[in-house]
Amino acid sequence: MRHKQTRKQIIEIFPRQSWFWSLIGVVSLGIVFVPIPSTFSQPVEKTLRVEASTFEFTPAVLSVNPGDLVTIELNSTDVVHGLYLDGYDIQITAQPGQTAYLKFVADARGTFRFRCSVSCGALHPFMIGKLKVGPDLLLWRGVGMAVLAALAAVWSFHSWSAIT
């Protein structure tokens, strides 16, 4: 009986709480879309040497600034390896002992996985590295949304329980 009453009350209370969900919606839109000011040095030409061997890239984490003209020198030390850059959808292949060059403007911000694009052995699908272009806005916006989601979930039940 009490359960039924509670449900009825929820139905009654939620329309009155539309301001709460509107607020959550506005704040989440802010977290997702509001541009975050950041200062960077002038774009420069940057050359990064990456060694590929089974099954890792060294260094595995690369950092550049947005707008940099980046050249990745891929050097394979054992078998044929490739480098495919997620998000930019570009790739190169390096023969053993030879260097291949991948040149691009780092115009998309965030953290992007790069991965081997040539079957090189058992763990080939998991031969992965990271390219960081400026601050990782997706991660920070995700963390902001996680905090908001946690608060919203707690508050929504708090409102519900307060009337029962």
Binding site: G142, M145, A146, A149, A150, A153, F157, H158
Partner: peptide
């Protein structure tokens, strides 16, 4: 990110319940 946020929100509502 979206999938994880939905999962977290859902989990916390279950915690509260």
């Amino acid at each position: 990110v979206l999938v994880l946020i939905v999962g977290l929100f859902w989990s916390i509502t279950v915690i509260q319940r």
